[in-house]
Amino acid sequence: MKEIKDKAREMMKGFCRVCKVCDGKACAGEVPGMGGLGTASSFKNNLSALAEVKLNMRLLHGATEPDCSTKVLGYDLAMPIMAAPIGGVSFNMGGKITEDEYADAVVGGSKAAGVIGCVGDGVPPFIHEAGYAAIDKNDGYGIPFIKPWEGEELEEKFEKAKATGCTTFGVDVDAAGLITLRQMGRPVSPKKPEEIKALIDTVHGWGAKFILKGIMTPDETELAVEVGADAIVVSNHGGRVLDHAPGSAAVLPGIAKAVSGKLDVIVDGGIRDGVDVLKMLALGADAVMIGRPVSIAAVGGLQEGVETYFATLKGQLLQAMVLTGSQTVEDITSRVLFSE
């Protein structure tokens, strides 16, 4: 990983410093780029909320060779991890690799690691086109996320995504805060529950599943259940749309409680290693999404970089499971969390 990060630092110069700790401090306000909006408070809060979570170490047990495999949204995953939907290599990551190379690395690398890659959307069109092409190359094994566009573009993107053969679709409603898209003449906006339900009904009619990304409160979690979402992603969009939002780990327990097993709960924001994955699972998530670290691995090492990063994560997660007495993912509950 050191070689991959060193290469990424060179490739992303001027766009991302590939800091030893990716915490949003050095890149505050650098949007476009890999930073957080404004003061980067929301980006930083993702890290600090996770850092505040402490674990109970247990060693009087028989969990010496744990199993971190799981099933989420019908996918059999080697571990409860997905690559988050990120695009825009040219204006966020330095442009030293193409969008096609990036999407292929994320989707192909995820598949090779036994997890699943998600692809992003945006302006210009080559962002979603590269993502959809990567999913198509991998026989539909990938999840396209479509921004909450206004007008006909939303339905058109769903139809184009369907052609990839994917079995799950997502809408990142948290992208509604990207005012740059409106300035480019391609507005995105919040969606009423009935609008989301219409999309979900269409996707279910195709025999596919639907993820709603950008849920940060219990009341909107309950709305997601009501409109029929199969999963939500607890996310503040990497701290890139609303300054001074709480970290996702801080709101996750309340959201998981509100769901009560009615849909799958995925979470992103500040997850950097396998211990962070374990913390999020213990706080109530069924799986996690990881964004910036996967992007850095892809830019620094293409598919091999992504595979190496996921292999590193898996080793860290398994070690954390041993040290908390967790034989399976189902054992990773609030019992592993320390509270005074």
Results as ranks from 00 to 15, higher is better:
3 E>K: 12
4 I>A: 14
5 K>Q: 08
11 M>T: 03
14 G>V: 07
14 G>T: 07
19 C>N: 03
25 K>D: 09
29 G>T: 09
33 G>F: 07
33 G>L: 03
34 M>V: 13
35 G>Y: 07
36 G>P: 05
36 G>E: 05
37 L>V: 14
38 G>V: 05
40 A>N: 12
43 F>C: 11
43 F>R: 09
44 K>D: 07
45 N>S: 14
46 N>P: 05
51 A>H: 07
51 A>I: 07
56 N>P: 04
67 D>Q: 10
69 S>H: 02
72 V>T: 03
73 L>Q: 08
76 D>C: 04
76 D>I: 02
82 M>K: 00
83 A>L: 00
83 A>N: 00
83 A>S: 02
84 A>F: 01
85 P>Y: 01
86 I>S: 02
88 G>H: 08
91 F>A: 06
94 G>N: 07
99 E>F: 05
103 A>V: 00
109 G>A: 11
121 D>H: 14
121 D>M: 12
122 G>D: 09
128 H>I: 15
136 D>H: 10
141 Y>P: 03
142 G>C: 03
143 I>F: 11
149 W>I: 12
154 L>G: 07
154 L>A: 11
155 E>Q: 12
158 F>T: 08
163 A>S: 12
164 T>H: 11
168 T>C: 11
175 A>E: 02
176 A>R: 08
177 G>I: 04
178 L>H: 05
181 L>M: 14
185 G>P: 12
186 R>V: 06
187 P>N: 08
188 V>D: 06
193 P>I: 10
197 K>T: 03
198 A>W: 03
199 L>K: 04
201 D>W: 05
201 D>Q: 09
205 G>W: 03
209 K>P: 04
211 I>G: 07
212 L>A: 00
215 I>T: 04
219 D>G: 05
222 E>N: 15
222 E>C: 08
224 A>F: 13
226 E>R: 15
226 E>A: 14
226 E>S: 15
227 V>K: 04
230 D>Y: 04
231 A>F: 09
231 A>K: 10
233 V>W: 03
233 V>E: 03
233 V>T: 05
234 V>E: 06
236 N>M: 14
237 H>W: 15
243 D>L: 09
245 A>Q: 13
247 G>S: 09
250 A>P: 03
252 L>R: 13
253 P>W: 14
253 P>R: 15
253 P>N: 10
253 P>Q: 13
254 G>L: 06
260 S>P: 03
261 G>F: 14
265 V>T: 11
265 V>H: 07
268 D>K: 04
269 G>Q: 12
269 G>H: 01
274 G>H: 06
283 L>G: 14
284 G>V: 01
288 V>L: 09
292 R>M: 14
297 A>P: 02
299 V>N: 04
304 E>Q: 06
307 E>S: 01
308 T>I: 02
309 Y>E: 01
309 Y>R: 02
315 G>R: 07
316 Q>Y: 01
318 L>N: 06
319 Q>S: 13
321 M>I: 09
326 S>T: 10
329 V>P: 00
329 V>I: 01
330 E>I: 04
331 D>W: 14
334 S>W: 10
338 F>D: 09
339 S>H: 11
340 E>D: 10
